[in-house]
Amino acid sequence: MIKTMNQRIGLILFLLAAVYLILSYQLPSYPYTAVDADVIPKGLGWFLLVLSFFLYFSKAIETDAEKAKRAIPKKEVLVLASVFGMIFVYILFFELIGFVIMTAIFIFFSSWFLGYEKWKTNLAVSILFPVILYCIFVFALGIVLPKGILPI
């Protein structure tokens, strides 16, 4: 039944629209307004529901170019996932450890991971970039970035 990519996405969007609609119908009502807060969301929810049907039953066949676009080798998916993992760790410790250290670590490791071999340049950039950015933001512009464990 679920053969084409469009059908799969259609199904996901259908579920999304359904959840959104359920939530819309649970919005509390407010008595003193002509058009309440739930009207537009309900409309949007139903619209997406209809669109998901359209997509599901659409006869459009994926072009080769489109197929090629989403054909990503397994190994590359893993690489992407790792990059996202690194960003996640970066955000996780962003305030705790501080902008400068985390950014330096992040730039160094993610550049290296993605295949940047010149480790000396890498090291220099990953230290200088956050330090300079930090100085500009904090000292020149008065915008506080998390200092974390560093004294300044």
């Binding site: 730039i107 993610s110 550049s111 991971f113 940047y116 010149k118 950039v125 990953s126």
Partner: peptide
């Protein structure tokens, strides 16, 4: 270089 650019 691209890897560095991505990180930045």
């Amino acid at each position: 270089p691209r890897p560095l650019l991505i990180s930045l």
